[in-house]
Amino acid sequence: MKDNSVKPEEKPVPVKADVEKKAVVLQKEDKPVADKIKVGHVHMSGCTGCLVSLADNYGGLLTILDKYADLVYGLTLADVRHIPKMDVALVEGSVCIQDKISVDEIKETREKAAVVVAVGGCACYGNITRFARGGQTNQPQHESFLPVGDLIKVDVYIPGCAPTPQLIRNVCVMAYLLLKGNKDQQDLAKKYLTPLMQLAERGTEACGCDLMYDVVNQGLCMGCGSCAAACPVRAITHEYGKPNVNREMCIKCGACYAQCPRSFFNFDVITGFEGILEAIDGALK
């Protein structure tokens, strides 16, 4: 590891990306943890609420960065200017297609990252940026915002506005287990991440209407109340045990449908809730 860090220093630096790489390697040397995964936070058009959510893991975030993941890219959190190679890219925000840099960066993210995770409603479904029609100073021509999945293949979805610190944390831990764990851990991680991957395959449109189309209309709703609890804007109430969505208020974050136990319910994972929650707690101590 030491050799690696010294070598590039002696050479003339060919491209900027390598400078960044070196910086990372040097940091690693201070606290060598061999098996960490490389995680980056890619910021598209979002409000930084998703990044704040990641940070809101507080001590848990420090443990993640200590033991499991190097943050190799992230505005405000890592002093790296260009998207480096990484294992997991956490993408926040939708992509403004009139902004060349955003479009280039999201494509580059796909090239550089083994796993692309759309974090938050904007990256997954457009969320509140679905209502953008341009006209804002100082770039009034920026009017079209697309969910990341409309431009590149996205592997995992973490819907919600803001996505919760706990779900981001769980996905980070599972991504680590998937890439670095033993066989059992990899199996668990695969099973855990599967529905979030299926959500990514499901598409880039979300709305409170999903509760009608894909749950109530399908004869699956049993009136548990999860959707109303999950809604960040309190657009959902229950009338006689069934969800009633105030569509004027819905911001299209996708939380209600993803939270619904009748959108997905993977018995093989959720039945083991006690052990998994303990394991995640343990991993973050």
Binding site: G160, A162, T164, L167, G225, A258, V269
Partner: peptide, 18 residues
């Protein structure tokens, strides 16, 4: 089913921050 919802909510807290 509501217990299922609670446990899903604990493992996949999409909109159930903290």
């Amino acid at each position: 089913c509501q217990m299922q919802a609670v446990r899903k909510g604990q493992l996949y807290p999409v909109g159930l921050r903290d």
